[in-house]
Computed example of a mutant assay.
Amino acid sequence: AAANLIEARRFIRELTPPQLDDQTLGGALRRLARTQWATQGLDVQVRVSDTVVLPMHLQTALLRITQGAIANVLQHAHATTATVTIGIEGDTLRFTVEDDGTGFDAELPEPGTAGKSDSFGLRATAERVHQLGGRLDIDTASGRGTTLTVDLPLTEFA
């Protein structure tokens, strides 16, 4: 019970958003990479142009998605490195989290359903992306790394 309580507290702490008011999403992610994630043994590279200006609700959503994805990497993937990339391609914001871990057999749940996945994190991410009008893809297989990709239409936020 004590170990589960410690783990639950760690998850809650990781989901507490760093200050976005005084820095960009890229800055917040780089700070997490240097501090929280590095101390847990994961080298996270952040490739986000600070010139990408996003509404606060979208920054917060991407921060939460990143935190959930990195929590999964730390807990399940046995990875040593991960890369977070946020960029704009035409009228689409593309967000990826890629790791060099062991991968898994993934079947994404349909938004609004429990789906076949028992991963609460993946269900929450799929639901959040659906609410934003975007698309979530996971490219993975047992024995190789995982790439989580979120595509969001920028026309939704103009």
Rank of each mutant, 00 (worst) to 15 (best):
L54W: 11
P111E: 09
G27F: 07
L122A: 04
G112M: 08
R135H: 14
I6E: 14
T51V: 00
F157L: 12
T146Q: 07
T146R: 05
M56Q: 05
L154D: 06
Q19V: 02
Q67P: 04
H76K: 09
K116N: 07
E107Q: 12
G115T: 08
T83C: 11
A141L: 09
I88K: 15
F120S: 10
I12G: 00
M56I: 01
D50M: 12
V52I: 15
G90K: 00
T146K: 06
R135Y: 00
L29V: 02
I70K: 10
V84I: 15
G112I: 06
V73K: 04
T85W: 03
N4G: 11
T125Y: 01
K116D: 12
Q40K: 10
A158V: 14
A8R: 10
P109K: 04
F104E: 13
L29K: 02
D118A: 08
I12D: 00
T80Y: 05
D91Q: 14
A124S: 12
Q131Y: 13
V150F: 08
A1G: 14
V97Y: 05
R128M: 15
T125N: 08
D99W: 08
Q19S: 10
R64D: 08
V53C: 01
L148R: 05
T16L: 15
L42W: 09
T16A: 13
F120N: 06
D100S: 13
I138R: 01
R135G: 07
V97K: 05
R10L: 15
R31N: 06
A38F: 09
A38R: 15
D91N: 14
Q40D: 12
G115K: 11
V44E: 05
A79K: 05
R144M: 07
T102K: 12
D50R: 06
R135F: 04
S117K: 02
M56F: 01
A1D: 09
L5R: 14
G112E: 03
T92V: 11
R135A: 13
L58C: 06
T92A: 13
R31W: 08
R9G: 00
G121V: 11
G115Y: 08
R30L: 02
D43R: 15
A38E: 14
G143Q: 09
V73M: 03
D139Q: 03
A38I: 02
P18Y: 07
G68V: 00
D99S: 04
K116M: 04
T24F: 09
G101R: 06
A61N: 02
T146G: 04
S117R: 00
N4T: 09
P109M: 06
H57R: 12
A141S: 14
V129S: 05
T149A: 15
R13W: 08
A106I: 11
L58F: 11
L5A: 13
I138V: 15
T39A: 14
A79R: 03
T155C: 05
I70Q: 05
P17Y: 07
L108S: 05
G121F: 00
E89S: 13
T92L: 14
A2T: 07
R10W: 07
